[in-house]
């Protein structure tokens, strides 16, 4: 904690200055703040949503979708990435198709998924899982192919079997790239949940966005956006914190600072 703390106040400075400035600008009457409500009104919206209990329901719904989609995306991305990384045959068989699928814009899946899986949770979770899948699949597959042949030779000298080679050499060697891809995947998960919820949901932060637009309440839209920012940052920090101990051995720039 000691290492993280000194950086935190500095990161908060800019958003607080901007919020304070805007609050003052509206207070002094330089702007009516109708389209961009000042922080006080934003907090008011959040408070009233929280009082009614709606806010927690929305947050919970969104977090649950992201968590389920992230879990599914990580699982499949890791399996496919490991498979295509280790087996040249699997790579030649599967990778070209996945690369083509990767280039389909996420929104394009929505109508199809709604037809296939209905408008409820399954289609949303699957859409998020697609977003999470690709960064993880790509980096893991590439990272395995990029593992130093010389280290693999050390394993061969000790007659490592395939499983031991993966567990003792390939997996740890790819861990830094894998962790980075987890964080990229999580970020995409938050992006895709909005796409999923905007398309049709009765709760969730994405639903709040649409609701705010329909009812002409920019403070509700902003409240939702602020929630996304906080949740996204918090989940990323948690992931970074959880994976940091796995990478203590790295000889990177970070160890110098």
């Amino acid at each position: 904690m000691r290492k993280i703390w000194p950086h935190r106040p500095l990161g908060l400075l800019l958003p607080l200055l901007l919020a304070g400035g805007w609050e003052l600008a509206v207070a002094f009457g330089w702007s009516n703040g109708r389209l961009l409500p000042p922080p006080s009104r934003l907090l008011g919206s959040l408070a009233s949503l929280a009082e009614r209990g709606d806010l927690w329901d929305h947050i919970l719904a969104t977090v649950a979708r992201v968590a389920a989609g992230f879990g599914l995306g990580v699982l499949t991305g890791t399996l496919m990435g490991a498979l295509t990384g280790v087996s040249p045959l699997a790579r030649r068989l599967i990778d070209p198709m996945l690369q083509a699928v990767r280039n389909v814009p996420s929104i394009a899946w929505v109508p199809l998924f709604i037809l296939w899986f209905g408008i409820f949770e399954t289609s949303k979770v699957l859409l998020i899982a697609i977003g999470v899948f690709f960064p993880i699949y790509l980096s893991l597959s590439d990272a395995i192919l990029g593992v130093d042949r010389k280290l693999v030779e050390v394993g061969r000298m000790f007659r490592f079997g395939r499983l031991r080679m993966v567990r003792r050499i390939l997996l740890p060697a790819t861990l830094p790239a894998y962790v980075t891809s987890l964080r990229a995947g999580l970020g995409l998960g938050w992006m895709f949940v909005v796409a999923a919820e905007v398309m049709g949901a009765s709760e969730g932060l994405g639903f709040l966005l649409v609701d705010g637009q329909m009812t002409g309440a920019p403070s509700v839209i902003l409240a939702s956006i602020v929630c996304f920012a906080i949740l996204g940052k918090a989940s990323d920090s948690l992931l970074a914190l959880a994976t940091d101990p796995l990478l203590r051995w790295q000889d990177g720039f970070k160890t110098m600072t």
């Binding site: 010389k150 280290l151 030779e153 050390v154 000298m157 000790f158 031991r164 003792r168 050499i169 740890p172 060697a173 861990l175 051995w249 790295q250 000889d251």
Partner: peptide, 24 residues
Amino acid sequence: GLVFQEPRLMAWLTVADNAGLGLL
């Protein structure tokens, strides 16, 4: 046994774990 031109140590293992890699 073979000692390579470069140490080829596993960066993610401590010195002791590197030395014991062949004795798993």
